[in-house]
Structures are given as C-alpha cells and as structure tokens.
Design a protein around this nucleic acid. Structure first.
Length: 160
DNA sequence: GCCAACGTTGGC
DNA sequence: GCCAACGTTGGC
C-alpha cells in the first residue's frame, strides 16, 4: 500500500543568466535536474521533504526586477547531485563521494508561465505574503511556500 | 558595483 | 563549542 501525503509547495530561485524558466521549457520534456544547491538547509529539503507532484514557483533572482515567472512541478525524489563529484564542474565539492554524496537534487518539469510575473516589489506590498520565506530569509535558494501563498501568487499572476 | 545579510570555516 | 574572519548571495 502506498502512503501519500498532501501536495506541498516550494519556491526555487535561479539567476536567469544561468538557468531561466525558458531554459527549463526548452529542455527535453521540459524536465531538468535542479543541481548545484550547496546550502545545507536547502539540501535537507531536496533530500527529505520535496516529493514528486509538489508545486514549484520559479523565481528569477539577481536581475533588475526579481520576480516569480512561472510554475514547475517536482517529478522525482531527491537523489545525489553528481555534479559535486565532478572536479571539472562548477559546483564540485571535494567532500562529496559516491558513499557520501553530501548534496542532493530533484528533477523539475516546466508547467506554465504566469500570465504576468509577480515581482518581489509587488509581493512586499501584500500583507498576505508578509510571512514568505522569500521576504524574511531571502538567501535560501530552495524554500517552502504555504498553500495559501501559492494560491495567492497564482491569482496575482493571472492564473485561477 | 556596492554592500548588508548571513552561512560556513577554522583557530583557539 | 565559541566566534571572528571570510565568502557568497542577491537586492539595489
């Protein structure tokens, strides 16, 4: 018997100059592994908490107008981020090994863009969103989003 | 490009 | 195990 849990929601940050929402769309089946996360709190989420079927808000950071631009979906369990094992990879980590991967990732699949991006500035003006991790601990690159925040942002983004 | 916030490292 | 130094993130 399979035990399922309620669908959960997350926000993944990416610098569009490095990997944008359109880049995800262009991947085979719109699917790509979310590698390169090198923060332990985010690692724990990827390894233990984030499950197939969960919703992902795709956020563009480090640009003049940072914003949530689209929706993606988690399509794998967490599994070892093998880019940490590759000395030639940007996010190589000498501590990682096959026996002790240290870092984890999940696969995400493109779902749809928001009809209009929801900018960081706009989010700051909505009291309903004041509890968002994005506004309180902005540096965490993989972070939880409440169901209420998810619905609210989709509505702001023109999706019902 | 600046710099505040903050996570990580390493000496003690 | 504390905490200063350091490195990185990311808004501006």
């Amino acid at each position: 018997m399979t035990v399922t849990r309620e669908r959960l929601f997350w926000l993944f940050k990416s610098e569009p100059s490095c990997f944008s929402f359109d880049d995800l769309k262009a991947r085979h089946n719109g699917t790509e592994h979310w590698d390169g996360v090198r923060n332990f709190q985010a690692r724990n989420l990827l390894r233990d908490e984030i499950k197939p079927g969960d919703g992902v808000l795709f956020y563009h950071s480090n640009i003049p107008e940072p914003a949530i631009v689209g929706i993606a979906e988690v399509v794998s369990e967490g599994y070892p981020d093998w880019t940490a094992l590759d000395p030639s990879a940007e996010h190589f980590d000498p501590r990682a090994s096959r026996d002790n991967p240290v870092w984890y990732m999940v696969d995400v699949r493109y779902v749809r863009p928001l009809k209009r991006p929801v900018t960081l500035n706009e989010m700051k003006t909505h009291p309903e969103l004041s509890g968002m991790v994005l506004l309180k601990r902005s540096r965490l690159s993989v972070q939880p989003v409440t169901h209420h925040e998810w619905e609210y942002i989709l509505r702001l983004g023109g999706i019902d």
